[in-house]
Amino acid sequence: MKPQNNILRKLKGFMLRTMPNMITCREFEGFVVDYLDNELPEKQRSKFELHIRMCKECRQYLDAYQRTIEISRRACSSSDDAVPDDVPDDLVKAILKARKY
């Protein structure tokens, strides 16, 4: 990392830690699930949204995080659509046999 970037990061960290209504990137992490579930109390929500506006890394992180959720949902639901027809016949027979006992 360039020394200039390092100084900027330190400044950013200092600002996030000390200015009112700010949260650090680490604190942001703890709010993500509730934010996406619309369960963050108003005060925390505005801090979270202010952080998104101010921090490019967290903004991009959140986009990629949400995209990950979307992809995992779609990837798994499309694999459900493609449920194989080749269900083992011996398994079906074993289940039906077990039913009789």
């Binding site: 650090t24 942001f28 991009q60 990837a75």
Partner: peptide
């Protein structure tokens, strides 16, 4: 995720984010 000593996120810059449709 990783953070530096200033509690800032260490995240490589995203220049592109693939679409869900393309991946799926």
């Amino acid at each position: 995720p990783e953070f530096d000593k200033s509690e800032c996120r260490l995240e490589a810059e995203w220049t592109h984010l693939a679409s869900t449709d393309n991946i799926v």
